[in-house]
Computed example of a mutant assay.
Amino acid sequence: MQIYRIDHVAQVTPDLDRQVALLEGLFGFRRVRSWDNPAEGVRGARLEIPGSRGQAWEVVAPAGDNSSLRTWLDEHKGRPGLHHVGAEVPDLEAVRAELEVRGIKPTDWAWGRWLEASLSPPEHGTGVLWRLRGPGTLDMCGDGAASAAEPSEPDGPSLGVVALDHICQAFHDRDVLARWYRDLAGFVQVWRTADEEHPDMADLVLNIPGSTICWEVIMPRGEDSFIDRFLERGGPGAHHVTFEVADWDAALAACEHHDVPTFDDEEGVTDGAAWKHTFVHPKHTGGILVQLFWEERPGVWVRSDKVPPPWT
């Protein structure tokens, strides 16, 4: 199968208006569309991510009595979180056939306009949910019943996001998952840490052909890895989402203005250029761990000289 464009990242929440206000205020996203479709069980809003042309952030909430999102929230003890990644494929039926050959049974939604499936190896449990649509089926996530939305004026400074950089997935073996994504959808490994670089983790980064968004895979190392604890709680799902910001001091000032703390700050200098990164806890973002980074020159935060050798 081939993914030729990431369309959006979607999070589910019990309180749509509150989450949209957070994204417009702290994150500086701009709402461009909203919908309320009880027949499909969804209320939602689509927001533009600054700098991420063609890719959006969507917030969805239950609508009606039989919403699958209400079931999702019940299964997660009412906690919001990342729901799915939306993408376009050239041939939806070919994707269905490929997934079924690999032991993945996709779910049809909206009368065949899109499919939903976890694209992780099924023998390792449910991973990240993907929503896939093909050409000629452009309605996705309420678009058909959508209406334009007037963006609100942000309350104070925002983070100054300039791009959605990558989505990170936790998995027990980074190479197993990387090979799976390569064989399934042509993901290309472009960067990896040395096995011994970090005491509690190892990671690699995959390019998604046709997308500016990358896919990071992190795996546990050592006897007390935070990734082991994450996998024990929820399995091999999305761990965090990473955004680049234009001005580090301004981003931290925006967090302070909105009473949003950060943690695990790190900084360094690579090839004479500075970089910094930090995290925002899911309880301050609507259920998703968010990483923020800034780099003085492109390519110094994630070193371009860590190109991996060919797989054997």
Rank of each mutant, 00 (worst) to 15 (best):
G237C: 06
F279C: 08
R297P: 07
A63F: 03
V300F: 02
D173L: 04
W301L: 14
V280I: 13
D247Y: 03
T212E: 01
L82A: 13
E295V: 12
R233E: 06
V85L: 11
R102G: 03
E256R: 15
G142Q: 09
L177N: 09
A97Q: 10
L177S: 08
W35F: 15
D165N: 15
P282W: 00
D247S: 03
G144V: 13
P298W: 09
A273P: 00
I49L: 04
A178E: 05
W248I: 07
R18V: 05
A254F: 06
R192N: 01
D305V: 10
D17S: 14
V302W: 08
P80Y: 00
E88N: 10
G156I: 06
T212F: 01
D264M: 15
V302K: 13
I288C: 07
G186D: 00
R297H: 13
N207C: 02
C141E: 10
K276H: 12
D264P: 07
G81H: 10
D247C: 05
R182S: 11
T126S: 14
L26F: 04
P209K: 02
L22S: 07
F243H: 04
G64V: 01
S68F: 14
P236T: 04
T285L: 00
R102T: 11
D183V: 04
T242H: 11
E116L: 08
A10N: 08
W111E: 15
G64K: 02
W114K: 05
T312H: 13
H8V: 04
G222D: 13
V245T: 13
E150A: 06
R46A: 14
P80S: 05
